[in-house]
Nucleic acid binder design. Sequence first.
RNA 1: GCCGUGGUAGCCCAAUUGGUAGAGGCGGCAGACUUAAAAUCUGCAAAGUGUGGGUCCGACUCCCACUCACGGCACCA
Length: 974
Amino acid sequence: MHFSPQNNQFWQSDFLIDWSSIESKWHKIWQDEKYFDADPSEKKKFFVTVAYPYPNSPQHIGHGRTYTLADVHARFMRMCGYNVLFPMGFHYTGTPILGMARRVQENDKELIEAFRTIYKVPEQNIQEFSEPVKIAQYFHQEIKSGMIEMGYSIDWRREFTTVDPVYNKFIEWQFRKLKSKNLVIQGSHPVGWCPKDHNPVSQHDTLGDVEPAFTEYVLIKFRYDKYIIPTATLRPETIFGVTNLWVNPDVTYKIIDVDGENWIVSAECARKLEFMDKKVILISEIKGSALVGKKIKIPVRNEHVVILPASFVKSENGTGLVMSVPAHAPFDYQALEDIKKNTRNFEEDVLNSVRAINPISIIQTEGYGEIPAKEIIEKFKIEDQNSPRLEEATKELYGKEFYEGILKNNTNQFAGKKIADVKEEVKKWLLKRKDADTIFELNDGPIRCRCGTECVVKILNDQWFLDYSNKNWKKDAHSCINEMKILPEDIRNEFNHVVDWLRERACARQHGLGTKLPWDKNWIIESLSDSVIYMAYYILAKYVNKKQITAENLEDEFFDYIFLEEGNVKKVSANCKITENLLESIKNEFSYFYPVNSRHSGRDLVPNHLTFFVFNHIAIFPKKYWPEEIVVNGSVLMDGKKMSKSMGNIIPLRDAIRMYGADPIRLAILISAELLQDADFNLEAVKGIKNKLENMLEDCSKYKLNIGSNLQQEDKWLLSRLQQLVFETTSAMEKMRLREALHYILYEFDSDIQWYLKRANAKNRTDVSSTLYNALSIRVTMLSPFAPHIAEEMWEKLGNEGLVSKSLWPLVHNEDIDSLSLQSENLLKSTMDDIRNILKVTKITPKKIIIYTSDSWKNKAYQKILSNVIKGEMNIGVLIKSLISDKETELVKKDPDFVKKTVNDILSEPIESRQAKAETNIIDEKKILLELDSLVQKDFGVNVQVFSESDPEKYDPKNKARTARPFKPAILIE
RNA sequence: GCCGUGGUAGCCCAAUUGGUAGAGGCGGCAGACUUAAAAUCUGCAAAGUGUGGGUCCGACUCCCACUCACGGCACCA
């Protein structure tokens, strides 16, 4: 579906209230109040941050989720009395924007059209987009406007971008700090590479978005005369089983000088080697057929074997020559068989060599005998070396041998070891003896760059890495993660797991926006490395924006002083030309707000950003500044499907706000799933929520506070429920179970009010305004973090003073919880349900309804059974025995079935309500059920009579009364 | 392949330390209000928890095996 306001059918018809003017009204008031600006104060602080956006496109509904969660968190904590800092920055660092700018320069029609029609970028802006920063700046403003329109309670005085000069200084400081701790190291590193662009390629740089994955192969160096014939293999341990080499007789090979050695390889391989950090000089050429029959020397074993022809050898794979291990490699075994079968095509001496070859078995694997390759070929019924099933057979055998195979005695020092354990060891050993080398090869080649050039694997030299493999660093990261609060708890394991598998990570690239590596200006610090401790920068940003700090004169000692309390204030002041006073107040502000109390982010950032965030804080800051909490949320689906440009189901956030209003969108995103689940966003849900809010707003102008009205049973009940709901909502909020909290506020609340109104109407009451006013005020207070605009409007309609977002989150008043009225109303509700059910089943029109409450011994028995069930004793026999042994309850022997039914009654209730019943006195059911009369009158139009089971005067023609149980009165309908 | 997460009414999603699977939303059906529709309200129907085993008085929940779906596997924000 293409989404646009024109074809949207929902928004035009029922425009009861003007959301957009309500929103801007409150935006202005919030802004004038400067309510979201946070500075150090006497109050306790709460610092909540969320991953800043990368401004290469406008935000859509999906982005809205993380920010909305964080905003609700910020607003909630503010209402709980904290001085909350919730700031926002913009992450310009990275290469995608660069790529976009290049495509604009090249006049890429598709991209420019997307800017015009999907993103609705004005024409004059698109003109400027050939300059990367202009793209970032445009979408920066676009995103910021969206955030304001969503009502995010951000302290905008602290806004910054990652290309600001002071930010650059800050990142330089970070990197020098890391380097001084030996956490930045240098090394070489293979990458997918476009030889034309001279640039690494990742998935979105390739045609067809193919991930340029590659594998490391070991090159075994066989010697022939003065030449070296390398063969590529994933199984270096099979060198002990080599019986011959394979060459493709139709291929012309190159003789090249590789770092002083003469290698014979295919032309394709020669090219690959050039990118492997090797010096390659072409010497001459040789036909493959000329190599057939030549004897070569096997490294380690000091034996000579022959080179044989084979058509399965491809010049583009590996070196274009293959070592042959017929005992364990199905291809090799089959190729030998093929020669034996087609004797006509081969010279006599080749045939003689082949006949002389005996497969050398070197791996013992359960389920296989001497020559596993032979067995599996027979199993797969393979006829010749061109069979497509050979690939499959190889895979199966290789897998089996890798995990279960054990090297035999003919493998020297490796004998008796498992392949899986020894593979790496053999490789290192061969490399050390200079009998091997390594080469990287693309897995699913050929892969082409967007420019059309075929990609290769290149070893990048002098690459800079953050050494996430450092053991001590990992240890600290684990302990930080284990000590911090992680929401939801389920994801803690994943963090620990990431810490375990993380290894060196390249932290600089040669292109892109960002900060230059301070000691090697050819490199730009990569985007996932310059975004890990920037939360500290929010403290500086305020002063930078006030022009009290400039990049000039800013030395490392400034950051050391502010963030680490190192150095001498006078010296820092003199060197950095910042007054001592200012230095002190910045430092105090930092120590006031740090550490980060809560970091919000999507779950896609768990394996990278969020974990790096932990690592880098550990490395740079003292323990007191380590982050305290991480909150992770899932992504957003659109009508159950992933959002994507190609499906056309991306709704830009600002469009959605215009159509539905900010609050309905905030609620729709939050209510559709718990934290970690993917949230399914759909327009139907938004519509429903919008209606709900509009009705609530209408209710708010109906009820007013009147002092002195008499509280009746149902008032006490509603106010008790209110307290319970406040309690439930608050504890859900504390666990960031926002969906659950919203559920209480929006729906649970509603059904309680419905019941209250039903009761009040049945009694023809007119004095309900005050109770409802109280309930609504609290409801609106709790709604306020979620739907801030409409909540303010409701607050005003209710006639309350000030801003609801500035009011305090309601406290639970346990003294207002009247357990008796809770139980009473439950009894009324369940009895009404029972009556309704009986009528449904019997299909009679009632003339008379009679209720019987249970005898007093049953109440006593009930209490006893209840306390036993709570203790965990629910064996019916045991319960009956103990009841009979007591005089008060011995009557149970006349009605043993009562016990079983009562246990079931109790078990069907939630644990809290069992507890509540155990703690309060037995309610007077007869008195309560008299209230039933008005309800029944209203619903069924007849009167109710209530008797006690023991009442001798009772009307009981069908002898029903004896089936009455506590909380389960007997009912007779005539 | 490896690691992780998850299979519950037509759909989305709940179910606290095992205690009769439902709180809710969307949709459906019936009724009320309405000239009508929308909205709202009242009531109703609908799954036995991916499959197969096991532990337990009792399993969506714990254990084992299988299966399907989704996400991650790095220099990409």
